[in-house]
Each structure stands twice: as C-alpha cells, then as structure tokens.
Design a protein around this nucleic acid. Structure first.
Lengths: 236, 236
DNA sequence: CACCTTAGAATGTATAGACATATAGCGCAA
DNA sequence: TTGCGCTATATGTCTATACATTCTAAGGTG
C-alpha cells in the first residue's frame, strides 16, 4: 500500500510522537520546514498537520506554531452496540420485557430529573434484557416528554425503548459513565443472581443540542457482558 | 462565533444527517453541486466532506460519490487517562507500589501469553495504585521482552510500568475490554475490601504493528473509579 | 528599566487548476 | 441476451498563490 504524501507526513510525525522522539509540549517543525523536507507545497503539509490536530495528537496555534499534545491522554473508540444486535451476533435469541411504565413528575430536589423534564413530565421505563431467556441486564430509563412527545403513544412492549429512540429521535451528543457496582436486592432478584453480584453499570445521557432527551441506567451481569474500546488502524 | 465556510458546509451536512433529513446509505450532492450551492471552490467542499468522512459520518467512494454512513454503529470517544494524572486532578496524592517482578516463560498452553512472548521471555509486573494511601486498583501486567528489551533495566519501583511504557515505547494499536467482576480473595486483600466486592476490570492489549508489546489487567475498586465516554461536539 | 508599538513569523482559509484513479452505466459485438 | 470495453463521472491528491489573523519578539520611547 503506497501512502499518499500527506499520509506519509502524517504517519511520520505520528510515530515520532508515539515513540517519544517528539515530547509533549515540544514544538514541531513549522510548515515551511516540512515543505523543504518533503519537497511539497504548503497545502499538503497543512493537510497532514490539520489531520493530526483533529485527532488530538498535536495542537496548532495561529502565529505561534504546532506543538505535541498534552500527556498521552489517549482516547479510544468505544463501540456501543445495540443490545439486540450484539446478542443475535453471538447466536442467542434476544428478548426484552417491559417491567414498568410510569408517567410521572420529576422527583423533588433531584436536579438531574428536573433538567431532563424541562418543566413537563417524564416517562419512566423499566425493562429487562435477556439472551436465550436468561436475564442479562436491567434497565431503568427516563425519557423527557418535552423532547419526545411521540413516545407516549409508542408500543414499547416488544421493542426496547433504546432501539425505539435510536430509530425515531435524532440526537447530537451523548455521555456514558461506566463503573462497577454490587447488585442491590431488587436488581439481583430481576437478574436471578445472588445479591451483591458484580454488575457493570452503564449510565448514559443523551442530548439534542442543549435539550436533554433521555437518561438511562443499565445494570449488566458482569459475567455476561463487556465493552470493547479500540485505538488504531484496525477497524472492523 | 462566525464559522469558516468549510465548517459551515460541514455542520450543515452534519445536522442534516443527525436530524434524519439525509437517511443512511443516501447519496449526498456531489462536490460540484455543493460548489454551486455555496459558491466556493472544490477544495473547500472537499475539506468539509473529508472531515465528515474522517469522523465516520459519511463514506466517500472514488468515482461513485459520497454516501451517508451506516446506521450509527454508535461509537463514542473513551478517555483513557493516565491514572496518576487523573488522581492528581481530583486533588489526591497518587501512589504506586510494585508488588512483584518476575522474569518467566509463558504458561504452557496459554496461547495469549505465547503470542505475547514471541518465543522469548515475559516480564510480569504486579502493582498497586493508590490515592491518598488508599488502595484504588490492582494491576497485573505482562511485557514482551522481545518487543521491549529495555524494560529489563528500567527502574519500576516508583514509576508505574504503564507510565514508563507510554514514555518509552511506541505503539500503534490498543484494545481495551471493560467488564465487572467480583474481587477474588487475593485481589480483595490487596484492595483492603471484602472478598466479592464489585470491581471494574480493564484488560488492555497493546501492539506495535503486528508485534504484541504488553497486556494488562487492572482491577479497579468499583466505588472509586469510573470511565467516561462521549459522543458529540463537546470536547474538553 | 518599564511600557508600547511594530514588523515578522506562523497558521487559517480560500482559489483555480491539473492530473490520477476508481466506479458505474452505456453501447456495441458476439 | 449476455458480456465486454469504453467513457463520463466523482473523488483523491497536489501545486502555487493570496490574503487574513494571531502570536512573538525586537526595538524604540518615555
């Protein structure tokens, strides 16, 4: 595979940074020097450096120069698969069961719920994900009726609300917190395991612009589920 | 904030996709049409579309056109901070203690260890990360001496091997598995918690090209640590 | 010596054109 | 009708240039 020139410049600098030959905060050669080195036009050098900046590897300051980024705060790509797809891919039969559906006002003093509600009501949806009939994850979701009025009429008995939302509601931003907790009595009962069993807790909030759409807490059986994140060129 | 022209083109198309106005697999206007619409040169349009392609929002095929990407195979950006930096940022004092250092051959029949060793020996490094003296994570790391001979002479008593590796060894690819487990007796003892306490298990493997460099298993106290992943424009 | 002005340096954005290369569809021939 | 080759199309890469914007440092002034 012959790399194009701007790709070659990009990877040269990239490996110099990753190998430590270029230390964090260190200044890179300026564009005109790289033009000399690679015998090319400034736009080509610029394309390579802009790509590195977009990837967060370097920081460019107008008038000042280009600098290697802060300590390798290497960010990776986290795949967040749709549960039903993921389960099917492993050859199991996916199931979803809606446990509770409540239309309610935000809890008093719960700032997060009040922000999500935006002065109106919330739809609370509790459900259970399973693979081949075995419980796999408990999910507690809150949806803002202010942002998604249509969900009040949606049929959520068979389709998980996450899938319904993905298909019907555009969103622009999301944040996921991943941690580990011991299952409380209620969660353990639903997952049919002993209380205190380790669960992977995934908490996600979703926005469209500055408007909050939904927040969800998912408790995964630690032994049945894991997340994978990648860095690098090997893309599936 | 006045956007530059290529940024405006980029965000226009981005929001058309996110809002569903442009459906997945749908074909985008070709570059010459966008030149007409925005009254600009092809390079400007190209810059906008290339950025969208790099972000995975669209797919471009030479000779065929540009197409909206597959259904959001929702990938998010996972921040993988250096532990010492993360702890310091929260105002605690970070500590690292090397518990064991063994030079050994890969376990017979353990394919992963044999791949990592590459016919030579492995360096096993067990350590404990702490914040303000309180145990926070146990780490078991294997380093390939074939890939990183220099680590045999490194002083790893005070500096975590992860930090040392980041500073001295170039790597190009990494994969992280995140799951939840109950602490076994040994891990619980080191973390000074009851056996069975929920821990966040982070397993990471690192490559340079096709050569394996290191693999590590970190058991984090569930209550003391979490990971955050983001999708969207809000960049820190 | 402290402060301000200014010139140069470096990146940001954009243009117009050129050639390369992969794709898809059309028309022709078997 | 089927299959093949050609061509128009669309993106990929690169050049050379121009002007805008922002930062740094040098030098002059009080």
């Amino acid at each position: 595979m012959t790399l194009s020139l701007h790709e070659r410049i990009r990877t040269d600098i990239e490996s110099a940074i990753l190998s430590g030959k270029l230390a964090p905060e260190e200044r890179l050669p300026v564009e005109h020097e790289l033009m000399q080195v690679y015998q090319c036009s400034r736009m080509t050098v610029n394309k390579a450096l802009s790509a590195l900046a977009a990837a967060g590897l370097i920081e460019r300051r107008k008038g000042a120069g280009s600098f290697v980024g802060r300590p390798h705060a290497h960010s990776m790509i986290l795949d967040v698969p749709d549960l039903s797809v993921e389960v099917a891919k492993r050859g199991h039969v996916y199931g979803y069961q809606l446990l509770a559906r409540k239309l309610r006002v935000p809890a008093r003093g719960n700032a997060e719920e009040e922000l999500l509600a935006g002065g109106r009501r919330l739809l609370q949806l509790d459900g259970l994900h399973s693979a081949d009939g075995a419980p796999m994850a408990v999910e507690r979701r809150l949806v803002s009726l202010a942002a998604v009025p249509a969900i009040a009429d949606a049929d959520l008995e068979r389709e998980p609300p996450g899938t319904w939302l993905l298909r019907h509601v555009p969103w622009t931003e999301a944040e996921t917190r991943i941690s580990a907790v011991s299952a409380d009595a209620e969660t353990a009962r639903l997952l049919k395991v002993a209380a205190g069993t380790a669960c992977l807790l995934v908490e996600r909030q979703t926005w469209r612009g500055s408007e909050r759409i939904t927040s969800v807490r998912q408790y995964f059986l630690g032994t049945a589920y894991h997340l994978v994140a990648r860095f690098g060129s090997s893309r599936s």
